[in-house]
Amino acid sequence: MNRNPREIVSDAVARFGSGREAVIQILTEINRELSYIPEEAIVAVAGAIGVSNAEIYSVISFYSFFSTEPRGRNIIRLCTTISCQMNGSGEILKTIEAELGIKAGDTTPDGRITLETTSCIGLCDQAPAMMVNDTPHTRLTPDETRRIIAGLE
């Protein structure tokens, strides 16, 4: 059961402080726990830090890990930058899309998985690679990828 966004914000503020410099850490907490940053949380962060709602929204919109749209319980970030592309990230992408019946950028209807493509994730020596939530998966093959997806709650 997800916690209330305001509760997450007040816990994060207690932990990281209400200074402006705590904003990314606070947003990271919300984003990790809820998979996205809902409007209510933005308002709470802006109030705690003492800046406008627009300011926090602007910050969120800059970073690719943050989202203000609801996302799945699991987020797959498949690298499509050059070394991964050369080693077959295109085929992996097709595999995931077929397996989940969604396109990159979308979330499965049951809210289980969001699929995103991402810039280089620093695993080029083990390409193709992807992150599932906080865990890296490397040297992907279509079979291995299907197995990983099947294991997601």
């Binding site: 410099e21 904003v23 990314i24 830090i49 602007s58 800059f62 970073y63 890990f65 943050f66 810039s119």
Partner: peptide
């Protein structure tokens, strides 16, 4: 301190902006 996904934050003043809780410009 974690970043949040922005290549440009490798530029040192962007990185500092990001650490200050702002857009990494």
């Amino acid at each position: 301190r974690p970043g949040a996904g922005a290549y440009v934050c490798g530029e040192e003043t962007s990185l500092i902006e990001s650490l200050e809780g702002k857009r990494g410009v």
